[in-house]
Write a protein that binds this DNA or RNA. Structure first.
Lengths: 344, 344
DNA sequence: TGTTAGCACTCAGAGGGGCCGAGTGCTAAT
DNA sequence: ATTAGCACTCGGCCCCTCTGAGTGCTAACA
């Protein structure tokens, strides 16, 4: 059987209606609502076909039809194809923009949740192929050294290193210079064993400390450690009866609270960025098991210099894809812009 | 009317039974369950008195009685009076203890939620009268300086400062020495205007930068900014039917997610620490409106040197106070111990 | 041949009635 | 002061019915 234009239109009408109401939609509704001017009987026939083809589902006899994952997928793919969408302004949000990236992201995720009425999340940017700007060792006390590591994009990480040998100020200074002269401007991938060996030799008796510092650098740069995730509006899922069943709701909210699985989502999203970085997971497609009854829309934003983060919106399968996609697109663009301004 | 011993015992029995079952408890139950050897009729008379005195409530005619906030309060106060409670071990938790305080706290809050089946939260320590260990300025590029500020307790904060004037390495070094010589070992309260003035004078043309740095120090030290709150087990509230009513659950979980109000709770807790730092808010007593149907138990832990944080457990009013109080006491002691070991 | 009207059928959900049992308050007896 | 007994209350549960939305099928129609 073929999905001709009329069937498409009917499917579209079904999905739209269902997105609004959340109730199974019947033939009569479509017959009246849409501008197809077909009787309910005809619609029924078509619906029967659509069901056979797997685009819609009847939750039980004598109920209307609801879209299946496959139906949603078709719908979303259509939207994704349609090219330029108008741009909505986030001025009010951006007015309050702060210098602190993390605070801003928290702001973003809140506004997003409030605007969309879905659950939202955002990850801080992961470091990817990022380069060292400089390392600064400072003596804390006789047995501890503070290593401050700054990367491109002004990301700063600290680590306190315990040392066995006592160091004087001068030695610390020398080690500083040594480390910086060799490591600055390198990405983690570029720092190889030969380089480390070389460093150790030059450091002489302090080679052990060098090893510690390198370890710290490696640890610190390793992205996963430091990707933070902010969420908001998890309780929005109570708005959608099909999700607020106690077991489901609890699972989804737990996932939001514990965040571990969200990290997986972020990583997966970053791996397959395409289509302007926006991805839509419908139902079972979702990488997170707890969200198999939801749709998850993710977008990748980039603050330049290999700093990529993810924004995600989680809602019912009948979410307002059109609006969500548009909003996410706008938002990621705005984030780009912020970065560029800050750079200037 | 007086609360004689028998009434006390009956009240106690009512509360304990209700804590177990979550159902209103009737006179017959108490008559059989307790070792008072009184008929249900007698119990009924006493219950009638207890109700009049405000310790118990009848949710509706022909239902049993449940404890009122006042009843719980009496019960909790009794427990708090009873002195030495046995100590329960958290060895498995502590085995995994890491150097990273925040990671450990996250661990703590998770274990706590899993063990108690209540919702839990923990705040990172707030800085209070804490002293500067040192300040380190580093040149990032021609217009930016990185200030690393280390406090007692090895708390490190970073801030990138934009500067208008170009600085060479040597100047940065000089400013470093200047700042450290004046500010080291001072707490934020000790840094006064005269000191700042003095610094500025010595800095000459760079006085503006000094001002920026001082601002940064102030900002960074200001506790509220940096108190982070971790939560876990928010969905545990679904275990308790009296809380899992949709509206209430949603409110509580939102509070947990947004965290702003939890900060208020933390602050309030830190302000009135007494009774080994453990406080119990029952129902309306809670500083957080959303939790007016819950009980909130908070404990203050101290990592020495003015670093205080808060642990909180949020559950139904019929929570197992005895166990919760014991657990919290143990936990805070363990945290103390960790600090002492780390110090050594 | 595609579309429509009509009709019998299905089924979830709302509403109502009746029953049950837990629990109370009161009274009279011990 | 305590207890036994009794009438009464009331929420929760089960069962039934009714309703209305929706379907599939068939026959008529253009």
């Amino acid at each position: 059987m073929e999905l001709d234009e009329r069937k498409q239109k009917i499917l579209d009408a079904i999905i739209r209606t269902y997105m609004e109401t959340g109730e199974p939609v019947g033939s009569r509704t479509i017959s009246k609502y849409s501008d197809l001017n077909l009787s309910s009987a005809t619609i029924r026939n078509e619906m029967s076909d659509l069901e056979e083809m797997g685009y819609i589902i009847q939750p039980h006899t004598s109920a209307g039809r609801i879209p299946s994952d496959k139906g949603y997928r078709l719908y979303v793919d259509h939207i994704l194809e349609s090219k330029d969408q108008e741009i909505q302004e986030f001025k009010d949000l951006m007015l309050e923009r702060t210098d602190k990236l993390e605070q801003m992201l928290q702001q973003v995720v809140k506004v997003l949740a409030a605007n969309t009425n879905y659950a939202t999340m955002v990850s801080t940017p992961a470091v990817k192929g990022n380069k060292l700007k400089f390392i600064q060792l400072s003596k804390v006390n006789s047995t501890q050294i503070l290593a401050v590591i700054m990367m491109e994009g002004n990301l700063v990480r600290n680590k306190v290193i315990d040392v066995t040998e006592e160091l004087d100020q001068e030695t610390v200074l020398k080690l500083n210079i040594l480390l910086n002269s060799v490591l600055n401007g390198r990405s983690i991938e570029e720092i190889n064993l030969a380089m480390i060996q070389n460093l150790k030799e030059q450091a002489g008796i302090h080679s052990e400390l060098i090893a510690s510092v390198i370890d710290a650098v490696a640890e610190v740069i390793h992205a996963e450690d430091e990707v933070k995730i902010y969420t908001s509006g998890a309780t929005n899922i109570f708005r959608y009866p099909e999700l607020s069943d106690n077991g489901k709701a609890s699972e989804i909210i737990s996932t939001f609270e514990e965040k571990q699985e969200l990290t997986d989502l972020v990583n997966q999203t970053l791996e397959n960025s395409d289509n302007q970085g926006i991805q839509v997971y419908i139902g079972q497609e979702s990488p997170i098991q707890a969200m198999k009854d939801c749709s998850v829309v993710t977008a990748t934003y980039e603050l330049g210099e290999g700093l990529q983060g993810t924004i995600g919106i989680i809602g019912p399968k009948r979410m307002d894809y059109e609006n969500v996609l548009k909003t996410l697109k706008t938002l990621t663009e705005q984030l780009d812009e912020i970065y560029n301004k800050r750079k200037k």
